[in-house]
Each structure stands twice: as structure tokens, then as C-alpha cells.
Amino acid sequence: QGDIVVALYPYDGIHPDDLSFKKGEKMKVLEEHGEWWKAKSLLTKKEGFIPSNYVAKLN
């Protein structure tokens, strides 16, 4: 089961498979690959890669 993270900063995706998000948006982490994680937005239901240093895990 994936962790839920919250965006600390907004992110505008650079690549087509990036997931753009707004500050405060919550996402479910699907896979962790070093600095880039695959996640699904709980708001938009879209999936893509996010920079892990832009988010914090919720406990």
C-alpha cells in the first residue's frame, strides 16, 4: 500500500509523463525511484512522476 504525500510546493511537469500538482495537493505514492516517484493525485486521479523533494509523507 502506497504512502500518502502532500505537496510542499507547486510543480509544473516538464516531461509528458510528469504529474503536475499544486501546493497542498495530496497524492498516493505508487513507486519510489530515487529522486522521482510515480504517484497518483487524489484530486485529479492522474498518474505521473513527481520530484520527491517537493512532497512530504503524511503519517
Rank of each mutant, 00 (worst) to 15 (best):
H15C: 14
D17Y: 13
V6E: 06
L30A: 03
K38I: 11
E47R: 07
Y9F: 12
Y9P: 00
K38N: 05
P16H: 09
K40D: 00
V29W: 02
D3S: 14
D18M: 12
I50K: 00
L58H: 07
K28D: 04
A56F: 11
K22A: 10
N53Q: 11
K22S: 10
Y11T: 00
I50N: 01
S20R: 07
K45C: 15
T44W: 03
K46A: 09
A7C: 05
V6Q: 06
K57Q: 08
I14R: 12
K28E: 14
N59I: 13
I50D: 01
D12H: 14
I50S: 01
A7G: 08
K38R: 13
F21M: 04
L19I: 04
S20Q: 06
Y9N: 05
S20P: 08
A56V: 15
Y11F: 13
K40L: 12
S52T: 07
L30D: 03
L30F: 07
T44A: 03
Q1H: 12
I4S: 03
T44S: 09
T44R: 03
E32R: 14
K26D: 02
K57C: 09
W37A: 06
F49L: 11
K40G: 04
Y11Q: 01
E31N: 07
E32G: 11
V55T: 05
L58Q: 07
P16F: 08
I50Y: 01
G34L: 05
W37E: 02
N59M: 12
E25T: 03
V55P: 01
G24F: 06
N59Q: 11
L42E: 05
K40F: 12
G2A: 10
Y11H: 05
V29A: 03
D3H: 15
L19M: 06
H33S: 10
V55W: 02
K26A: 08
K26V: 14
P16L: 08
I14N: 09
D12M: 12
G34I: 04
W36T: 09
F49I: 08
V5R: 02
P10A: 14
K38T: 06
K23R: 11
E32H: 11
L58F: 10
Y54S: 05
L43W: 15
L42I: 07
G13V: 04
K40N: 04
